[in-house]
């Protein structure tokens, strides 16, 4: 049992090493001058001295294996390199963006977990009744709304027409006020992006919960529970819901990983200074080092949340401990 847990961690380590290596080698395998990759299109405007300087700074003049070891060394020290485009260390850029991203993706993850599980449970418990059919249709409608469209509709109605909430950014520029006023300002900027993300995210959790709970409701042990004389409420909370949660928790843990990547579309629509917006800016500016670094952050986050899911699962389903 313990050895299998150890094997699992080892597997994740191998995946991590492969991901990092790919991240290192892929740009160097791409056609074209690595210098162009680092410095972008500006490379044509640079003097030979400047080119040599950049090459030396990036270590491009040294053998590949030395570069590889340096890359690992920097990485493990939390150094993602330098963005020549933005003239800033990439680690700092990501560090500035990540909290904003986590604020909106984290909030919407919590919201979708709560509403997804509750609505999914209500639906399954009332299978084929009007409540279930109504919820199911609403959720399918919500899930199929494109996020960019919903975001723009919310901006045009709530921000522009009704003037209720700010339409862009994470806080009002040059805002002066007490601490709590600042908190309220930041919060008001998160509402629309969080609604947009949640509308997209709740249906997935809802459908997982509904489906799992329907199959649990038909299980023999539910009949056993009823045969003991337990009330429907006890059967629901003690026997049905607990057995339905494991798959939902897995779905949520994996989403937690992707939450670190932010959401390019939503952050772009709301001009929100998160990681997704950084990815968008880097793509349009061809800032490859930044892109590589953000991808690595996402990879690691997904890996870690997978480990988390693996560790949580046996707590929810003791059968998983045996294998």
């Amino acid at each position: 049992m313990r050895s299998s847990r150890g094997n699992r961690i080892l597997e994740y380590l191998v995946v991590f090493v492969i991901a990092v290596s790919l991240n290192f080698f892929l740009p160097r395998l791409m056609p074209g001058n690595p210098l162009a990759l680092l410095a972008g299109v500006d490379v044509g405007l640079m003097t030979p001295e400047e080119k040599a300087k950049v090459k030396e700074e990036a270590g491009l003049d040294r053998p590949l294996w030395e570069q590889y070891i340096d890359y690992w060394n920097d990485l493990l020290h939390g150094d993602f390199g330098y963005s020549y485009k933005q003239k800033a260390p990439i680690t700092k850029m990501i560090g500035d963006r990540l909290p904003w991203t986590l604020l909106i993706t984290g909030s919407s993850l919590i919201i979708s977990a709560i509403f997804g599980v509750i609505f999914g449970a209500i639906s399954a418990w009332n299978r084929a009744k009007p409540v279930d059919i109504g919820l199911l249709w609403t959720m399918i409608l919500m899930g199929s709304m494109p996020t960019f469209w919903l975001g723009m509709m919310l901006i045009s109605i709530v921000s522009v027409d009704l003037q209720l909430l700010p339409s862009f950014g994470a806080m009002t520029p040059a805002f002066f006020g007490t601490f709590w006023e600042s908190v309220a300002d930041v919060a008001s900027h998160t509402i629309l992006p969080v609604i947009t993300l949640s509308v997209w995210s709740i249906p997935g959790v809802y459908l997982t919960m509904r489906y799992t709970m329907l199959s649990v409701l038909g299980a023999d042990f539910i009949r056993t529970a009823r045969s003991k004389g337990l009330s429907e409420k006890t059967v629901l909370f003690r026997h049905v819901v607990r057995n339905s949660l494991a798959p939902v928790v897995t779905v949520l843990a994996i989403r937690l990983g992707f939450a670190f990547g932010g959401t390019v579309v939503v952050e772009t629509v709301f001009s929100y200074p998160g990681l997704g917006r950084l990815i968008f800016e880097s793509v349009s500016g061809r800032d490859y080092p930044v892109l590589q670094a953000t991808f690595l952050v996402i990879t690691v986050a997904v890996l870690v949340s997978n480990i988390l899911a693996d560790m949580l699962y046996p707590l929810l389903d003791p059968r998983a401990k045996a294998n």
């Binding site: 042990f221 009949r223 056993t224 529970a225 003690r238 026997h239 607990r242 929810l316 389903d317 003791p318």
Partner: peptide, 10 residues
């Protein structure tokens, strides 16, 4: 069926 008639997580 005693395999399926007991709650697996209790």
């Amino acid at each position: 069926d005693p395999m399926t008639s007991l709650n697996p997580v209790m």
